[in-house]
Nucleic acid binder design. Structure first.
Length: 473
DNA sequence: TGGGGTTAT
DNA sequence: ATAACCC
């Protein structure tokens, strides 16, 4: 087994920092009075959130599936796009979402694997989330390759242990944003530093158990943790201290880089003359609320100050299962039916393995249009008849035909089949998933699996050391 | 651009 | 059902 961290990691030498006992004694401090309280009941404790972002996830999964690809420049292809690639390929100029044509021009030796079937990535993705769930119940997924973990409670536990053991030493793991000096008399700094050690353990466990590398950002909320995690890029982590928050958000040169501000909002903000984050900070709230609505306006303006009180919401099992295919052209009812029949078996298999029953089905289409290529999706959904929902668990029953009938009815609600049409995408989605009526088994291991934290699974990179009991006597 | 996901309205 | 957001 290779050591963690693997070679790319350049160790940045941070000075050692000392956590001192409270003034007035070298002995163990009195037992904390707030022992049983939740963190939210303590006003002084800041949250500690880690954002974990796996490095070029699909490419990593493919390299695990076929280790011979490891030394080569590798791209993962969907249709005619290289959706992601490993670092060997990036060195040679291949970028995410580059066309296969451009990628091959940049890098003729590029090896391509087809990544249109997401099954291997989806499976690995949930392994990562479940592994993080062993440390702590508050794990929120964002896409297949990112997770937020609220480690506030773990940090509090370690802080109490440190305080009870008297003199202790604690040092940061990984980078500190802006090279900001740590003040160990500031309990917020101490909590975040402990957070950086836990983040290192999380990354270590992901590498040791799953063979995946990734970045982490540690900060006092989700938004900041996500922003800071990308500071040092492959396989490194960064801690953000509150005093450097302004520098971080002002480093965003364009507002669309703010997570939460997407394409539409960017357009509207630009019409108002808001180009960067500092513009947004200074912009009159009243005017912003008129343009975007009170809720969105207040949310994004708080984001511009680095404020984000949104909780890390455990994702649990998926809310929906979908399968889609895009193509150049589909223009007859028969073709549509064939495409749907292609999509269904895989989907039904996934749902069967999940164990829950869907009660809603949706068909989504994209119609060709030369202008505005990127937004014309429509969908129709309907409740599944109960007798069909029941059949999802079973193997032999043929539920495909009745499902195809339902989906074709949905299709005819969108498209007049007597007129010419030109589709470029079909997608089937099952949602409104319900647990079986009191079958003893849970849907997946997700809720059952949260037990005691793993003891030695992750390599502790720097142990929190007890330094002395005798020092002060 | 793909092949997925989520939440809010 | 759509629109917005995320990857």
């Amino acid at each position: 087994m290779e050591p963690f961290p693997p070679p790319e990691e350049e160790e940045e030498e941070e000075e050692e920092d000392w956590l001192r006992p409270q003034p007035g004694g070298g002995a163990a401090p009195p037992a904390p009075a707030d022992h049983g309280k939740s963190v939210s009941a303590r006003s002084t404790a800041c949250r500690v959130v880690v954002h974990i972002d796996l490095d070029c996830f699909y490419a990593q999964v493919e390299m695990i599936r076929n280790p011979e690809l490891r030394a080569k420049p590798l791209g993962v292809q969907q249709k005619y796009i290289v959706v992601t690639c490993n670092y060997e390929a990036r060195k040679r100029g291949v970028k995410k979402m580059m066309s296969v044509k451009d990628a091959k021009e940049k890098c003729p030796q590029l090896v391509l694997v087809n990544g249109e079937d997401l099954t291997p990535y989806r499976e690995m993705s949930y392994k990562v989330t479940e592994l993080l769930g062993e440390f702590c119940p508050l794990v929120e997924r964002l896409g297949f390759d990112e997770n937020f973990v609220d480690i506030t409670e773990i940090v509090e536990k370690r802080l109490n242990q440190l305080q009870q053991s008297g003199w202790s030493r604690v040092s940061v793991s990984g980078h500190v944003y802006n090279h900001q000096a740590i003040n160990l008399h500031d309990t917020t700094h101490v909590r975040l530093v402990i957070g950086s050690q836990i983040a290192e353990e999380l990354r270590g466990a992901i590498y040791a158990r799953l063979g995946l590398t990734g970045c982490a950002g540690v900060a006092s909320n989700k938004f900041l943790s996500k922003l800071v995690s990308g500071t040092f890029k492959p396989n490194q982590q960064t801690l953000l201290l509150p005093e450097s928050c302004q520098d971080l958000i002002c480093s965003l040169d364009h507002i669309q880089k703010v997570p939460g501000i997407g394409y539409k909002t960017t357009q509207r903000l630009e019409m108002l003359g808001v180009r960067n984050v500092c513009d947004l900070q200074a912009f009159p709230s009243e005017v912003l609320e008129k343009e975007l609505g009170v809720s969105a306006a207040q949310r994004i303006q708080k984001l511009s100050y680095g404020e984000d009180d949104s909780p890390v919401t455990p994702s649990g099992p998926p809310q929906s299962f979908s399968d889609e295919d895009s193509f150049k052209k589909c223009s007859s009812e028969v073709e549509v039916k064939e495409k749907i029949e292609e999509l269904l078996p895989n989907l039904l298999d996934r749902i069967r393995r999940d164990g829950r029953q869907p009660h809603t089905v949706r068909l989504t289409i994209r119609q060709f249009s030369s202008t505005d290529k990127w937004f014309n999706r429509e969908s129709r959904q309907c409740a599944l008849p109960p007798h069909l929902s029941q059949k999802f668990g079973k193997e032999s029953s043929n539920i495909i035909s009745p499902l195809v009938d339902i989906l074709m009815k949905l299709f005819r609600k969108m498209i007049d089949v007597d007129l010419p049409f030109h589709l470029t995408l079909l997608s089937v989605c099952f949602s409104n998933l319900k647990d079986l009526p009191s079958s003893k088994k849970g849907s997946i291991g997700f809720y059952l699996k949260q037990m005691s934290p793993p003891s030695g699974s992750g390599k502790r990179v720097r142990e929190v050391e007890d330094v002395s009991q005798g020092e002060g006597s």
